[in-house]
Simulated scan of single mutants.
Amino acid sequence: MSHRPYIVGNWKMNGSRAMLAEARAIDRAAARHPHVQIALAPPFPLIGLLREAVSGIGVGGQDCHTEAKGAHTGDVSAAMLADIGADFVILGHSERRKDHGESDALVRAKADAALAAGLGVIVCVGETLDERDAGRAEAVVSGQIDGSIPLGEAAAEAVALGKVAVAYEPVWAIGTGRVAAVEDVVAMHAAIRARLTEAYGEAGAKVRILYGGSVNAGNAADLLAAEGVGGALVGGASLTADAFLPIVAAAPQQDD
């Protein structure tokens, strides 16, 4: 199961009840792509409604708090996500790191909380354009991996179950229309794989590494066929079935 390409749509702060029709269309199409694991992560208010609307795809949140409950106005716990029907949560997205000052340590604490609540996690990492131009891209991303991924017994169990994934999203490619060159994606995914193997041993080879950053129907086939790429974290192109499903269809079938 964990070897299937993982195509995840991140709706970010977009969506309405009317957009559930798009989710239903994606869900209906999922049966035509049994070799692909498909999921959507809508804003918090839509998670429960989306869970009720679909049956063949995963449903996730875009963030969670480190605590299970308490005096944290405006925050949502992993336990609440699980209770409303979420399967997983995206953590450490560059927009969270930048706009909310989230550190690697905070991302790891959130990942620990999510695993404790029974959720899968997608931990996001990625370098800025300045960091890439300075030749520091792999060092920055490797450091984020080392500091952000969950560790310990619970993490090891989650990795074995295919419930831990990493999304490499170069910050300069998110929402800009720019896409990293395939050879750069391959090199970065190899660097990430090395850190995952260091952290999880042989099981680290099974953690799917997704690529994200202006993924669309035109570039998905080349990116998803690249060595080491285990799926995609899709932003704007996940908001409609017409834009998202060609990306799903581009995912190659992989042997277990």
Rank of each mutant, 00 (worst) to 15 (best):
K12V: 07
G15L: 00
S16N: 11
S16R: 11
S16L: 05
R17W: 01
R17H: 09
M19W: 13
L20E: 08
R24G: 09
R24T: 08
A25E: 13
I26D: 03
A30H: 12
A31Y: 03
A31E: 13
A31C: 02
R32V: 00
P34M: 14
H35I: 13
V36I: 08
Q37E: 15
Q37S: 13
I38R: 08
A39N: 06
A39T: 04
A39W: 09
A41W: 06
P43F: 02
F44S: 02
I47V: 11
G48Y: 08
G48T: 08
L49G: 10
L49E: 15
L50D: 04
L50I: 09
R51A: 15
E52A: 14
A53I: 09
A53G: 10
V54H: 09
V54N: 05
V54D: 00
S55D: 11
G56R: 14
I57G: 04
G58H: 07
V59N: 03
G60T: 01
G60L: 09
G60N: 10
G60I: 11
G61S: 09
G61M: 11
G61N: 01
Q62V: 14
H65T: 10
T66Q: 10
T66A: 02
E67M: 07
E67A: 07
G70L: 06
A71P: 08
H72K: 00
